[in-house]
């Protein structure tokens, strides 16, 4: 699978699944890999180093995906600088856990803005250049909790379920221009987001996974790479589960 001459944007690309995706694109020969990050400058620089080591032109852009104006200008800037945008991976996400009766309005809004409105804003901005170039791939990172629900994650699961609906609608709208839109739904993956869980909970969750272990970010990245490239040329509107079988 070659991404030669492709320009790729991965949001939330400084760490975890986003970093693994960015590195996978660089390894697959993408000419330009751009990561966005919200605040961790050191991690972003480290990722840029990893990408450069693979021979890709790499850039990091600092913006918060919950800021729709920032999303729009980021995409416009990329198209202006590189002439195109071939792949958009909406990976940036965040969770504030708490049972529904304790969820604050501002925490609800923040999670919907980051996990759902951000991807919408980036898709809206990217769809125009992709339509003009008559092709492109968009991959949205949703979550197993968007399908299953999860106690303590009302807003996060609602946003991730919403992202699946967004994926399917945009897949239909942009199909005639050769733009494919898919989602990857990771299960329990070992990243900073899951690092804070205690051992008891971790063991309980692992028991529910037929493959008997957590996934790693690279395993999610392979699915993202597949849905971004020609190997999946006849697939759009799909949600690919990468969860070790925890939800089938």
């Amino acid at each position: 699978m070659s991404f030669k001459d492709k320009v790729v944007l991965v949001t939330g690309g400084s760490r975890g699944i986003g970093r693994a995706c960015a590195v996978a694109f660089a390894k697959a020969g993408a000419s330009t890999v751009i990561i966005s990050y919200a605040g961790n400058e050191a991690a972003a620089q480290e990722t840029v180093g990893l990408l450069t080591a693979e021979g890709a032109k790499a850039e990091s852009l600092r913006f918060d995906v919950s800021d729709t104006a920032a999303c729009t200008s980021a995409v416009e800037g990329i198209v202006k600088a590189h002439g195109r945008l071939d792949v958009l991976v909406n990976n940036a996400g965040m969770a504030v856990d708490g049972l529904v009766m304790r969820v604050k309005d501002e925490d609800w809004d923040k999670q919907l803005d980051t996990n759902l409105r951000g991807p919408f804003a980036l898709i809206r901005a990217a769809s125009r250049p992709m339509m003009k170039q008559r092709g492109g791939a968009i991959v949205n990172i949703t979550s197993v909790v968007g399908d299953m629900g999860n106690p303590g994650q009302a807003a996060y699961s609602a946003a991730k379920a919403g992202l699946i609906g967004l994926t399917k609608t945009v897949a239909r709208e942009l199909s005639s221009r050769g733009i494919r839109v898919n989602a990857v739904s990771p299960g329990f993956i070992g990243t900073d987001m899951t690092a804070h869980l205690n051992d008891d909970l971790r063991q309980k969750m692992t028991e529910g996974i037929p493959l008997g272990r957590l996934g790693n970010p690279e395993e999610v990245a392979q699915a993202v790479l597949f849905l971004s490239g020609d190997a999946s040329s006849y697939i759009t509107g799909e949600v690919l589960k990468v969860n070790g079988g925890m939800y089938m």
Partner: peptide, 11 residues
């Protein structure tokens, strides 16, 4: 033109 073309034209 199709519906997407119209949107692009308007924009």
């Amino acid at each position: 033109a199709d519906s997407l073309d119209i949107v692009e034209l308007v924009m």
